[in-house]
C-alpha cells in the first residue's frame, strides 16, 4: 500500500516537475505576478513619466532570449541557423564562435533593448514627443507624438523611427519602422529584417504599475506576427532614483575578450 502511494506521489511530482520545466522553456512567462495587496493610487491620465523597472529581473533581462516566436520563413531560418551565432538559446555555440554584435559593443538596437537587458529606464514626456532613456548602454529613443506619420521609406536606424499615440487615457501605443537589420532581437540570435514593424503597448494599470506588450510583425523573417512581450509588468521607481551608468566601452570589451573569452575558446 505504502509502496503504491509512494509510486503515485512520485508520478504526480514528475508531472509537476515536467510541467514547470516546460513552462519555463516554452510559455511566454511574462504573465504579471498576482496583484499587490496594497492598493496603488489611480493612474494619472496620459502620463508615463517616471523611472520604470521590471520587478522580475530575470525575466526583464531574459538571459535565454525570447521564449517563443512565430515560425521562421526560409530566409529567417537561414539567418538564424547559418549566420547569427549566439551565446545563448537553442542555437548557442561555444563562446569563441559567438558573433553577437553586443560583444564588440555595437548598439543593442530596437527592439532588443526591450527584449534583453531591460533594466531601469526613464520616460520623459514633452508636448511633441516621448523620450525613453535606458540605463543599459545609456541610450535613448524619441517617439514622436505630434501627429506625424511614419516615414514611407525610412533609412535604417539602430533604434528605428517611432511615432506614438494615446489609444485611451491609460494606453500608449508606439509604432516603429526603419530598424537596422544588423541588430538581433535578443541574445538567442533571433533575427529581424529592416521591414519589421513593431508595436509597443504601454498600459498603465495604476499609479505604480505598467504593462508592456511588444508585437513583432516581420513577414520576411516570421510567418506571422507574434508577441515578444505579453503584459510584462513594470513598476514605478522612486522619483529620486539615481540610475546607474552601464556602458559598453570597446577597450574594456577587448580586454574581456583577450583575458576571458579567447582562452576559454581554445
Amino acid at each position: 500500500m505504502l509502496k503504491r502511494f509512494a509510486g503515485q506521489a512520485i508520478s504526480v511530482l514528475a508531472v509537476l516537475a515536467f510541467s514547470f520545466s516546460m513552462l519555463a522553456q516554452m510559455v511566454p512567462a511574462q504573465q504579471p505576478p498576482p496583484a499587490k495587496t496594497r492598493k496603488a493610487a489611480p493612474a494619472p491620465r496620459r502620463d508615463l513619466s517616471g523611472i520604470w523597472e521590471t520587478p522580475d529581473r530575470m525575466e526583464g533581462i531574459s538571459p535565454a532570449g525570447v521564449r517563443t516566436h512565430a515560425p521562421f520563413t526560409p530566409l529567417g531560418a537561414n539567418i538564424a541557423n547559418n549566420i547569427f551565432k549566439p551565446g545563448d538559446g537553442p542555437r548557442k555555440v561555444p563562446i569563441g564562435l559567438v558573433n553577437d554584435p553586443l560583444d564588440s559593443c555595437d548598439p543593442a538596437g530596437f527592439p532588443r533593448d526591450l527584449l534583453f537587458e531591460l533594466r531601469p529606464f526613464q520616460v520623459v514626456q514633452t508636448s511633441k514627443e516621448v523620450l525613453m532613456l535606458y540605463q543599459y548602454q545609456q541610450v535613448w529613443r524619441r517617439i514622436w507624438t505630434d501627429g506625424r506619420e511614419l516615414p514611407k521609406d525610412p533609412d535604417p536606424k539602430w533604434y528605428g523611427y517611432s511615432v506614438g499615440k494615446w489609444e485611451d487615457d491609460y494606453t500608449f501605443v508606439v509604432e516603429t519602422v526603419g530598424t537596422d537589420e544588423r541588430t538581433w532581437l535578443d541574445n538567442a540570435g533571433d533575427p529581424h529584417s529592416s521591414e519589421m514593424r513593431v508595436e509597443e503597448r504601454y498600459h498603465r494599470v495604476d499609479h505604480d504599475n505598467l504593462e508592456l506588450t511588444v508585437k513583432i510583425d516581420d513577414p520576411k523573417i516570421y510567418t506571422e506576427p507574434w508577441l515578444a512581450r505579453d503584459k510584462l509588468r513594470l513598476t514605478l521607481m522612486p522619483a529620486d532614483t539615481d540610475t546607474m551608468e552601464m556602458i559598453c566601452a570597446p577597450s574594456e570589451a577587448e580586454e574581456y575578450k583577450k583575458t576571458m573569452a579567447t582562452p576559454l575558446s581554445k
Binding site: L13, A14, A17, G87, A261
Partner: peptide, 27 residues
C-alpha cells in the same frame, strides 16, 4: 528511473536562466 527523471526536469527548469549572453558553456 522516475527519481532521475524528476531531477532532470528540475535541472532543466533552473538551468535555463543561469547564463549571461556570453553563456556558461565553456565552464
Amino acid at each position: 528511473f522516475l527519481g532521475v527523471f524528476i531531477a532532470m526536469c528540475c535541472f532543466l527548469a533552473i538551468s535555463v536562466p543561469l547564463a549571461a549572453h556570453h553563456g556558461s558553456a565553456g565552464y
